[in-house]
Design a protein around this nucleic acid. Sequence first.
DNA 1: CACAAAAGTGACGAAACGTCAATTTGCGAC
DNA 2: GTCGCAAATTGACGTTTCGTCACTTTTGTG
Lengths: 205, 205
Amino acid sequence: MSETAANVEPIGKREKTKVANRQAILIAARAVFAELGYEAATVRDIIRGTDLASGTFYNYFKSKEEVFDALADDGARRFRPILRMARENAKSFEDYLHSAFVAYFHFIVQDNQLEGRPIEERRPHILRMDTPEMTAVYQEVRQSLEDAIAHGDAPHVDADYLACACIGIAQEVGSAMLRRSPHDIDAAADFVTGLLLKGLAGASR
Amino acid sequence: MSETAANVEPIGKREKTKVANRQAILIAARAVFAELGYEAATVRDIIRGTDLASGTFYNYFKSKEEVFDALADDGARRFRPILRMARENAKSFEDYLHSAFVAYFHFIVQDNQLEGRPIEERRPHILRMDTPEMTAVYQEVRQSLEDAIAHGDAPHVDADYLACACIGIAQEVGSAMLRRSPHDIDAAADFVTGLLLKGLAGASR
DNA sequence: CACAAAAGTGACGAAACGTCAATTTGCGAC
DNA sequence: GTCGCAAATTGACGTTTCGTCACTTTTGTG
């Protein structure tokens, strides 16, 4: 302990500007996608939003597409611990489902605060579900569901299909919720939780 | 009836080549997207797949993006009557749900027969749900659900959310099914139908 | 057949792409 | 501190794609 408890990350300036530049590109990209829409945006538009030169962009990303994937991946990375906490703090399976959906709906509301073009145009047309962090989120969901099944809180169902169903429901109902105002996060979460646990009978108010 | 019952469509050569050219572009685009992936494909790649000149492309579409939307729209247009038949022939609400899912899963299996790049890369990243035919499919689903509710076959739930949930489930579970082989259409349809009608309890085998 | 309107053509300027030789910056050795 | 090397940045450059438009060809009509 001769070194004080100072910085656990003895980061040099090299690495520091590297993360800073990467971050600057991502932030600029997010703004550009929101303002011009994903399709219309160009790599040049993105770097214009930073103080970097055009060539530098290619030190960090191969293409606009890769930038978007990185943004999506970052979102998933930020969401994962939230999801994990929902699991660890849940008092029951129903409680887990409900708080996980609340967390997700809350997350996407936050994530779309930026003004600009309609949300659909901000992104490429089909969302890749196969980036590393996206896969991790899927695994997290699936694991929770398998645990619940093993623990007797849920019947023996196909955990893969069930995880996909949960994610599909979250995405589509989440989008529908974003289209309404005000955003009724709790109502949406109640709806989907009831639907999953008891089927249609459970989805009514 | 002095005119013979001849051709109900007095189509001149003008209109005929117009539809033919449009179709040629769509077919070439489908092949190009499958081979190169949507992002990598260029407008030039697409017209190279036809015997048209580059300028002609822009008589039909404004951009690669618009071509994709037209392809998606065509898919929805082809699927809609299938969905309608499922509704009209259904003997019960459960029967409707099941046959609608079977029809959708069958449809996407057919629609991805082409070899080439992985399916995720064939399309832009996020699927627009706001093209005319896509909206019509959504309305069709929602209408069926509202009818079922009014007819007492389903409880009083938020039909918008329910329609979105059904579509989200269909998309995600459908993708999961495509990843498996052989494609177990009936198993998947049983799963989602049970899930919707009885919740988790109904989704087990 | 003649003529007008519609559609097709491909060359062209503009714009974006991705690369790379030259330059600047960071870091350890002395 | 400063020297030297490696890593990172820069922006100009050749290349590719874009979208347009003046011109040609095709189609329908009188």
